[in-house]
Amino acid sequence: MLLNIGKRILQALVVLIGVALLIFIMLRIVPGNAIITMMGEHANPEAIERMTAELGLDKPFYVQFYTYITGALRGDFGTSYSLHVSVSSLIAQAFPNTVCLALSAAVVAWLIGIVCGIIAAIKENSLLDRLFMGFSLFGVSMPVFMVAMVLQYFFAYKLGWFDISGVSDWRGFVLPAIALGWNSAGSIARLTRSTLVEVLQEDYIDTARAKGRRRMGVILFHALRNSMLPVITMMAVQLSSLLSGAVICETIFSINGIGRLAVDAISGRDIPLLQGTILLSTALVILGNLVADCLYSVLDPRVRKGD
């Protein structure tokens, strides 16, 4: 097991370096010049040249990449072109906000999603089931910006319960968390329902009932554990994508998170900052999958056996 995890971490590192290389290449082949964007179109050509040399952009590509990677491995992702501070400190500032938002969105999504999914599965084909599944379809298909704006309109503008934007205290996270979690709740509810309905048809459910287990016991002890396996994978992947920044949600609610940082980096052609945020997202997604795999092998003995 430990050996396996070690192997996976090494693999993840290779993937990360590969992704870094890809980002590096892509950001250099997109049209436009970061230096010109930074200094203005009418800047003095000598000044541009000086700046290029200062940032090391005149060196061959592989030297630039080597410098970047060795720096990144030490935790140094370069200096932001536009803000002139180190990328790592910018990320360190923005990340806590994103973590707060992601965790609260995840809690909303998972609580609502799992509870609704379980109820829908137990009451299969009932009115409640149809109601929940209809709602979850809403959740899956409604874009975040729409939910966000509807919430803002009613709960912040009309009722005045929350601030329209910005996060001065925990209340600032309520609306963004619902807007962001809404979507995940829908997919979690649907997956929970479908796997649970399937598991409830299994023979070992009959065995459990034949032992004299009551309905709730059968569901909690036997069915849920089996049906949660795919749901947990989905949850881990969702969490990692939530953590890597919710661009739209953070923008609408003016939260200084990773998503906002990435958007600013794109509009300002701030290559080091953009590289940093993308690399962070990639690392989080890989980490999320790794955690999902580990959890899976804890919960399912058949996977453990395969080690």
């Binding site: 065995t207 034949a210 089996n226 003995p301």
Partner: peptide, 16 residues
């Protein structure tokens, strides 16, 4: 009354 089933492969909970 107790009962045993046809398929011993699927009649036991795989994760317990």
């Amino acid at each position: 009354i107790a009962m045993i089933f046809q398929e011993p492969m699927t009649s036991l909970n795989p994760v317990v």
